[in-house]
Write a protein that binds this DNA or RNA. Structure first.
Lengths: 326, 326
DNA sequence: TTGAAAGCGATACCAA
DNA sequence: TTGGTATCGCTTTCAA
């Protein structure tokens, strides 16, 4: 079934059917009715490959996240998609993994679908990838981080400021012993480096490290926690780069007969409800994921409309959630 | 940048460039080299809207799941996508919600992209939706359930058999008191009905119910568990329709000072590691999600190649995982 | 092994 | 308000 079939049935030209579909107000009411009926009768479903090719607007938005099994990204994308659906866009999701190279690979694939815009996770990309995105001449929104030099717009929060705030928070509370359980994720690593520097600055020397590969899961958390316990973490605050890791860390502690927050405290990035509900002693930093998704969508839509944003960098901030740490 | 730009630079016709890209073996080696160089120089990215339109093959597969924030679906789709990527297909993900109507809505949208195949979750669809899918003349794979009348192929497991097996398992173990914590999800409801019937058949009368809305999360689990505790579940086995619910139920029990498995036992569908790791007393039924994703991809690919499967219904089965229940 | 010409199914632009 | 015609960028078919 094509436009032509519908047109024939409604006794109009194909372009009129096209108008009835896309600009119903530009078609006479009686014609519109005939066309609508013809569409119903034929069960016509538009071909957006053809439409996109002709109009140079695919009404497709690509969204790349490291892993969709990671709930924080899934949730962000959910709200992002919802917001775009309202404006008639469909979101094409892609998994870009945890390296710039795998991201570049999928960016190329995705660009071949000629999306009208693209969402990326993070602000670091290979040079060639940046080039390709520029060449595509479509709006790009980078999320989950900030930068002074966005490809186009960025919607996220400052991992530097976050790292500092967390350290200040716990130093101010009187903690003198710190441990870091960190995944091999760029942004997590950045926070860790910042935290380390901040600790030194605040005159605290002791920082115990444990590193695990991304993506994180409970097993990794337990594994990392074992490393830390071996190094001795009594009385410390264990700062985990995701709350899945934090959750795993607490399970391991529990398994080893240690008590939280009596023996030590745990902090995790992400604030997903399950960890906090299970272990009410877990302190976290909360990122407003619905807000980030919606703001990203909004920014992208405005850019698609050719608008120039007065501030291409949107900071959605973060909030430190203090639960029982002592 | 189009094929023509590349062709001009390589001093060949557009069709030769197209061949170099899609059937490199049908092009002279020297020509192939020139074309490859030209592609690199121009930074050409194919336009699959045009390609799909001309070839009537979009190399796009649609996959619809109730919610991508639900880890069991996210995981299935992950393996499904991986398997298809190998064959040069891209997966376009969509959230179809928990009703047939919302599914139909998104099926229409998705079909306008002319996917070469589509994955659905579940086997119940509106009549009009079935019609549309038939009219699209593309392979369809229904997952997470079985049916004697698949639209095309089905890859899943029997919720009837599952419900019966679970009841038999625990009755055989000596349980006489049962409780059901069930979400408003079609397949969960089906299992609950089957379990109820089976209990009667096995001569057991007592079954306490708690119902919560889908999608499930820890809060729902706690909420449902509160309902059950009010009705008295001491000594019972609480069967939850998802392990997120089971997880929540156990948290609520813990919060109320009840002990598992001393005061009662908990069982959940899904077997996601986090629940089991946190509460090692949780018995579950495990669905092999990677296997289901891969088998679905395989079936779809064979159907796309026009193959007629001798058995259009693939049962991936399930496995009851017994942990401490008494 | 390569190319010319005719679509694929829609929309843009300009006329009527 | 409606329609004719020329694309959009690629692949198919057939011929050389």
């Amino acid at each position: 079934m094509t436009l032509e079939d519908v047109a024939r049935l409604a006794n109009v030209s194909t372009i009129t059917v096209s108008r009835a579909l896309n600009h119903p107000d530009k078609v006479a009411k009686s014609t519109l009715e005939r066309v609508t009926r013809a569409i119903e009768q034929t069960g016509y479903v538009p071909n957006m490959l053809a439409g996109g090719l002709a109009s140079r607007r695919s009404r497709l938005i690509a969204a790349l996240v490291p892993a969709m099994t990671n709930a924080v990204y899934a949730e962000t994308i959910h709200y992002f998609s919802e917001a775009l659906k309202t404006s008639g866009y469909q979101v094409m999701l892609g998994e870009c993994g945890y390296t710039e190279e795998s991201e570049h690979e999928i960016v190329t694939t995705v660009l071949s679908r000629r999306p009208d815009g693209i969402l990326l996770t993070g602000v670091k990309h290979t040079l060639e990838c940046r080039r390709q995105l520029m060449a595509a001449r479509i709006p790009v929104v980078e999320t989950w981080d900030l930068t002074t030099t966005p490809l186009d717009v960025a919607v996220g929060f400052s991992h530097e400021r976050l790292g500092e705030s967390v350290i200040d928070h716990f130093v101010d509370k009187g903690f003198t012993k710190f441990a870091s359980l960190c995944a091999s994720d760029r942004r997590a690593r950045l926070r860790e480096a910042v935290m380390k520097a901040r600790l030194t600055r605040r005159g605290i020397a002791g920082l115990t490290f444990a590193a695990v590969p991304a993506p994180t899961d409970l097993r990794r958390g337990r594994e990392g926690m074992r490393q830390l316990i071996e190094q001795g973490v009594n009385g410390a605050i264990v700062i985990c780069s995701s709350d899945t890791l934090a959750h795993g860390a607490m399970i391991e502690a529990q398994a080893q007969g240690l008590s939280i927050p009596k023996d030590f405290a745990v902090f995790g990035f992400g604030d997903q409800s399950f960890a906090a509900e299970t272990f009410p002693a877990l302190s976290t930093v909360r990122i407003d994921r619905p807000e980030m998704g919606r703001r990203a969508a909004e920014a992208l839509l405005r850019r698609i409309d050719g608008e120039l944003l007065d501030d291409p960098v949107v900071d959605v901030g973060f909030e430190i959630i203090e639960r029982e740490t002592a």
